[in-house]
Amino acid sequence: MAQADLSSPARLQQAAVPAMTPLRRFLMRFNRLFDDARLLPVLLIAPVLIFFIVWNVIPTLWMIGLSFYRYQISIPDSLAFLGIDNYTDIIRDRAMWQGLSRTFIWVFFGVGIQTLLGMVLGFLFWGSKSMPGRRLALTLLFTPMIVTPVAAGLFFRLIYEPTFGILNWFTQSFFGQEVLLLQNPEVAFWAVLFVDIWMWTPFMILITLAALASVPKAEMEAAEIDRLSWFDRIRYIILPHGKYILMLGILLRTIDSFKTLDLVYLMAVPGSTTKLIAILLRESAFEALNVGWSSALAIILLLTAIAFTSIYLYILNLNSKAKAKEVAT
């Protein structure tokens, strides 16, 4: 607030007194440069734009270009123009379709179970405001989602370990049965999915709590006075207020679950039942070094992600509109 009364005469006189060293003049000019209403926004956004262009737009354009070529780093002189052959190849590729359908199963069951479980537990935690040690309990509850995914994969490798893992000890001493989870391709997929569910159910609990927090207290109290059944309370009060936040949470989880790589990579299972689409892409790009083909697949995933993002923003808009309406009425 030092410059608050710059226009008063006293201030003007004062401003003339400090010696106008070149540095000071430069600094003042520099400061005033920012006041140009046309220049300022450009200057402020420029750094982000530079990052965006150098680290995203240029590489992506490069990749779009390469997706029309045969380009295999391991084979010299393999660069050849193919047109859309890479894309038609991908559409005909069986492994890719298997990976994709596996990914859909992964997303469907993973996000589905996380959502159901998260909503139930979120409801349970709704009335926990007066709980002793709530902050610590919530920290413990939310820890799985901020743990390094690679490390989480390792934890469960130790737990699932057939000879000395705690899970196996448990099943052997109570059911007399040995379980092979990661070593058995048929169940490995579900064993890894279980870890994903463990990691991300807390996220859906968080989202459910946020959705519940957006329900006005007065309406819940009115419902209590009217003795509305819980089913009706959910249907007429909680869902209309919280549905958009829930939808955003589910969508965000869907997008994230679609990209799963670290966890599966580290739990590295023999066979191919856990080869999700991101894993396939990593293998073709960085092990088979088949850059042209991988670029084409990456472009397809990119477009899918953009489509998901537009749905996300659409719901986000609905949410803010609904909120604005609430404030207006």
């Binding site: 892409l281 850059v291 670029s295 990456a298 995933l301």
Partner: peptide
């Protein structure tokens, strides 16, 4: 997906 970003 991070892989798609990291290729280019």
């Amino acid at each position: 997906p991070a892989v798609a970003v990291v290729i280019p």
